[in-house]
Design a protein around this nucleic acid. Structure first.
Lengths: 211, 211
DNA sequence: CTTTTGACTAAATTATTAAAAAAGTCAAAG
DNA sequence: CTTTGACTTTTTTAATAATTTAGTCAAAAG
């Protein structure tokens, strides 16, 4: 790795600390510069604007997330445990980086946060593809019925993500949810995962008449 | 029905029209008074404040919702069709009264909208009890496995409601979602319902090890 | 030639205040 | 018991000034 990349990484690491504690909007470029003992224009030598720094930060976080998730998944080979591993990994990252509002699906909260939308959309596609591959694998080993893996993957991810709304939204007066809230979300996601998995196993037997 | 109740109903009906077209915040007590050709103080003779009028409006809407839903359900006796009937009914009401933000689970958007929270919470409890009774019925006739009806009811309702987030939030620049958005939500809710139902049928066979 | 900096500008936020509108009151009239 | 005109009080909204922060640039330092 060359000098410029090393410096960029240093900046990103420093920015992650402030972003995840104070949020993106409440962090100024000057503060980030001060943290690594350089002046603000020096920062702009490595990142043309705040938006590109934010994108770099989110990309780093998502890269870490997928690295950890794929690491855990590599040791497993049944969909039930894989779903749980996904939930555990999600909980950890959502909790850690909650102040970045990465879960926020809406293009609001200022132009800056908008920048995340594209990166997050990419991450959603990647995560969906990952889950689809797990489902496909489960189909092949006969763990679940022959379902549309891609459709079920999106449905599963949206369903478990949607569950968090009922816990997170009512407490948005607080700066950040506490351990209890994250635990509650996790429990409900596990419950839904159990039903969902059970549904995938016997899907097509006699209930697809619904669609 | 006596005079005072008739007048109160007239006011509520008139308020519903404005609320569902312009929203609660954008509707003034004066406008409602004008609509029924009385002065504002006259309105305050029937409703001590705007909040109590809003509550009366929401109670009326929810009463209508449950009346229609229970009517449809009375003709059915299998969980699959009952889930669909629920989704159809929900779509109709959520679409019609979207401007009231009744789906909004958060205590925000001004003190007034807060008033709805209590009424809506009551409606959620009632709806959950209703679905629980459907599941219990399904258990008795052997349509689904012997699950915790109350827990599954809450899980199902939160899961299908949570799905709407991904369609509704990204378009909150628009005043109100279009037919397409409601259709998309409905389709995804049907998909999830199919998997969920399938899951309830075979639940306990070998996948409850997740919990 | 790459990186850093002091001194700057421009754009966006925030704070302050004034004006308007809406909620809510009340004594008196129908 | 209802309705009303004339009122007060509380919230919203609008406008503006003050401040902060993003972003630039020519020149110095390595």
């Amino acid at each position: 790795m060359n000098d410029i990349d090393r410096k960029r990484e240093l900046i990103v690491e420093s920015a992650i600390k402030r972003f995840s504690h104070f949020g993106i909007q409440k962090t100024t470029m000057n503060e980030i510069a001060d943290d690594i003992s350089v002046t603000q224009p020096s920062l702009y030598h490595y990142f043309p604007d705040k938006m590109s720094l934010v994108i770099a930060v989110v990309e780093k976080i998502m890269a870490d997330y997928f690295e950890e998730l794929e690491g855990k998944l590599a040791t497993l080979n049944n969909l039930g445990e894989e779903f749980i591993a996904l939930l555990v990994c999600r909980k950890k990252f959502i909790k850690r980086y909650f102040m970045l509002n990465l879960t926020e699906t809406s293009p609001e909260a200022g132009q800056i946060q908008n920048a995340c939308y594209g990166v997050m959309e990419h991450a959603r596609v990647r995560e969906s593809a990952l889950v689809a591959s797990l489902i496909t694998k489960a189909i092949h080993i006969g763990e679940v019925a022959s379902v549309d893996a891609d459709k079920m993957s999106k449905l599963y991810l949206d369903a478990i993500t949607g569950l968090s709304v009922f816990v997170l939204i009512p407490i948005k007066n607080k700066f950040s949810p506490g351990e209890d809230e994250f635990d509650l979300i996790f429990e409900r996601q596990k419950e839904l995962s159990a039903v969902f998995l059970s549904g995938l196993k016997s899907f097509g037997s006699d209930s697809e008449t619904l669609l």
